[in-house]
Amino acid sequence: MIKPFRIDIPQVDLDDLTDRLTRTRWPNEVTDAGWDYGFPLTRLKELAEHWRTRYDWRAHEAELNRLPHFTTEIDGQNIHFVHVRSANPDALALILTHGWPGSFLEFLDVIEPLSRDFHLVIPSIPGYGFSGPTHERGWDAVRIAHAWAELMRRLGYERYGAQGGDFGAGISLALGAVAPEQVVGVHVNYLPTRPDPDADVQLSATDEARLDKVRQLMANRPPYQALQALTPQTIGYALTDSPVGQLVWIAERFAQWTDPATPVSDDRMLTNISLYWLTATAASSARLHHDVPRGRPLPCPVPVGVAVFAHDITQSVRPLAERLYDIRHWSEFDRGGHFAAMEVPDLLAGDVRDFFLARRPDDSLVAAG
């Protein structure tokens, strides 16, 4: 059963957030620390004070409630999603999947341009936001992909495309693997390509530089990733109990993964962080790092489109990507970072449109009723 959903955070939870922010215990910081020891204290105090005194959750909640929200239960798990129909009844459907530390909010600025040509389904990953915490093991990319296939079936879409970045890219590719008869194509804006000494391919100087960056990341695993992959429950205690802890855990990613020329506004970032805090999903969202299997991904037989943004964590190497996927579309952009839908929504929406309009089947079916 699919049920309409409305966001309505209890006032007591907002008051509790304000109280906790007021009583924050701050650590000291050495003189002229900058970023040498982690997120700078002055900037974090500025963000925390903005969250406590100027940020208005109710205003953003009202804006979000203008969208059509729904929930349904799939495989024993609550699933929240936004479903926006195009004015064109024959439009192809797209399912857009966020990553960590994002949420369905990542896609707010691409809804209007994309819904001119596509029906949009924008779910929250199990364990994230209004999909609520998960309660059992095994919610990896493949299981989520099966849930997405069931969600699209319930909505009546027999043929559709999938798009995502970060974990959303892996889930979208997995969806193409588990439902190839339904998925007309997969577009991703994050596609890590690891060095492959057995690959008999010619690489340009740019490709080699990109692989050097990947090698550095592999040799120096980011601390957040190690903690969430190895002990998500342990870090979850701190993030669920301290709003400033949750704030800095995500704000650091936005600071390091965005293009300085296309920053995400403090209010948009705080809305995203508030979603994690108010739904107490820090630990359950972190579990995805633990549960996602390592190694070679599932074969994805459907056409794949890739958008590469200059300031993302890494940039894909096309000759290596083509050994794994049926690449039909490849775009390189000189601006934008990891949160492309929030940073450069015009570029991402245009690239998604170009890829899927070329994939649109003549017999695409839309949801009934």
Rank of each mutant, 00 (worst) to 15 (best):
A145Q: 05
P345S: 11
R268V: 12
P222A: 14
I74V: 12
S274R: 01
V84P: 06
E106P: 04
I9E: 02
D363T: 13
L151I: 03
L320M: 05
G156K: 03
R210G: 11
E49K: 13
G164P: 01
E46L: 03
Q163P: 02
L270P: 04
P113R: 09
W257N: 11
I125C: 06
V308R: 11
S115P: 07
W26S: 05
L365T: 15
A33W: 02
C300L: 05
H50Q: 09
T206N: 12
N65Y: 12
R43H: 10
L67C: 08
T206P: 00
T42H: 12
E332A: 10
G138Y: 10
V244C: 01
D109E: 14
S204C: 07
G185F: 03
L227Q: 14
G185C: 05
P113D: 07
R58K: 14
I9Q: 02
L108S: 01
R23A: 15
R54C: 12
K45Y: 04
F333C: 07
L120Q: 11
E46S: 13
L155I: 04
R296W: 00
L278W: 02
H69N: 06
E208P: 00
H50E: 11
D241N: 11
A145T: 10
F107C: 06
S284N: 08
P293K: 10
L270H: 04
I2C: 10
I313L: 15
H80K: 07
G170Q: 02
G38E: 00
T262H: 12
R23S: 14
V142H: 05
F339K: 08
I313C: 08
D354Y: 00
G336I: 06
V188H: 06
T281C: 13
A91P: 10
H187N: 14
D32K: 12
Y157M: 06
H135T: 15
L278E: 06
T206W: 01
P27D: 08
V183R: 06
R52Q: 15
R20H: 12
V142M: 00
T72E: 06
V352R: 01
I171F: 00
F355N: 07
E343R: 04
Y55E: 03
R23V: 01
T97C: 09
D207L: 03
M342Y: 04
H69F: 09
G34V: 08
G337S: 08
T314C: 11
H146F: 05
E136C: 06
G176M: 02
G164C: 05
G168E: 01
D326I: 00
F167A: 14
L94D: 12
A33F: 04
L14I: 08
P303Q: 06
A91T: 07
L217A: 11
V308A: 07
N65M: 09
V121K: 09
G176K: 01
T314R: 03
L227C: 09
G138E: 05
P299V: 08
A358M: 01
P133W: 07
P263Q: 08
I171V: 13
D212K: 14
G165L: 03
N189F: 10
G336Q: 04
R294V: 07
R253K: 15
R210I: 10
R58Y: 07
D212F: 01
P361Q: 09
L105Y: 13
N272A: 06
G99E: 02
